[in-house]
């Protein structure tokens, strides 16, 4: 089994818009196909996961996607209720109605509570051995550090109480590099790469979670090698252009448009390569960097997830 799929808990994160959800959905799909009982959870319940799998809503209680795959959305309030019921054994949950209503504010007021209910629930699934792998479509760059750092923070803030007693085993799971890993998704662009590099550093310094790999998503294919590019440049010169246009019985302008389009593709790719080189240079050399291709065909929904899963599987085997 590829190393990445041998983890038990994977937090997939990255700047908004880089394809975090698709990558998380693909990792989960791949793992489930390899027989791992897999749970995939979206932390920000926007319905992205449901869109990725083209299924109905993915509630907190989970929706079965396929034999080994269940998808859910985080709901910290439901997580608290479950926690109270299952772990803290607080009875008659109905009587704490006001708590439920005021929950958002408690969670806001008591820093780290929402985060720990999120991370705690996910770790709990691992601890209870209900799944072999939990893939988390985690918050984007800005918030994920807070989430993963919450258990440590809680330990410092809360000195007694049930929460305190729970953080120890949560921290043990989070801090175990053979069980838990972070996956940073980025694209070959300036800001996503910058954020990925910053995030890698912050994960290391502020959280117990180890960086499993970095995924460069939407990498454009290489059009030409160097010598081919020289030929291409030659084609774009007016004399050759005339020739091409005459052969194709069309206007110079049209041929020029086609060549310009190819030039755009070359330029876009080259800009991307520069960012990827920076990424490689600034991420610790022992962290694997996986490349996923840009999907020219319909780039969303289940088909995209399958394509990304296939590409990922090839990357993992090389």
């Amino acid at each position: 089994m590829p190393e990445l799929l041998a983890y038990q808990l994977l937090f997939v994160t990255g700047k908004g818009g880089v394809g975090k959800t698709t990558v998380a959905a693909a990792i989960a799909l791949l793992a489930s196909e390899q027989g791992r009982r897999t749970l995939v959870c979206e932390v920000e319940p926007k319905g992205d996961l449901a869109r990725a799998y083209e299924c109905g809503p993915t509630p907190f209680s989970g929706r079965r996607i396929s034999e080994n795959l269940v998808a859910m959305s985080m709901d910290t309030e439901a997580s608290m209720r479950e926690y109270l019921r299952v772990v803290a054994k607080v009875p008659t949950i109905g009587h704490i109605g006001p708590v439920a209503r005021a929950f958002d504010f408690v969670a806001t007021a008591a820093p780290g509570i929402k985060e720990i209910l999120t991370v705690g629930k996910l770790c709990f699934e691992i601890r209870a051995s209900r799944y072999d792998l939990v893939v988390v479509d985690a918050s984007s760059t800005g918030n994920v550090v807070g989430e993963l750092a919450a258990p440590t923070g809680i330990n410092e803030l809360i000195r007694v109480g049930v929460v305190r007693s729970q953080t120890d085993w949560i921290l043990e799971i989070l801090g175990d590099p053979t069980r838990t890993g972070a996956v940073i998704v980025t694209t070959p662009e300036e800001m996503p790469v910058t954020e990925a590099v910053d995030l890698a550093a912050r994960l290391a310094s502020e959280t117990p979670v180890h960086l499993a790999c970095v995924v460069a998503n939407r990498v454009l294919p290489e059009l030409f090698g160097h010598s081919e590019e020289l030929v291409f440049n030659e084609l774009a010169r007016s004399a050759t252009l005339d020739l091409l246009a005459r052969e194709l019985e069309t206007s110079n302008e049209l041929v020029e448009e086609v060549l310009a389009a190819a030039r755009l593709a070359v330029t876009v790719r080259r800009d991307g390569v520069a960012h990827l080189e920076r990424l490689r240079a600034e991420i610790a050399s022992d962290v694997p960097l996986l490349y996923l291709p840009y999907l020219f065909a319909r780039a969303h929904g289940l088909r995209a997830v399958r394509q990304v899963a296939r590409a990922l599987s090839e990357e993992l085997l090389t």
């Binding site: 109270l84 803290a88 704490i96 109605g97 408690v106 007021a109 803030l157 809360i158 007694v160």
Partner: peptide, 26 residues
């Protein structure tokens, strides 16, 4: 009466020390 259940639960989850810190802040 209305807030009692809240305290029972909050106390249990968060611990009274933390609640006091929180209260002071608020």
């Amino acid at each position: 009466f209305a807030s009692r259940p809240f305290y029972q639960v909050a106390d249990r989850i968060l611990g009274s020390q933390f609640l006091e810190d929180l209260a002071e802040f608020f």
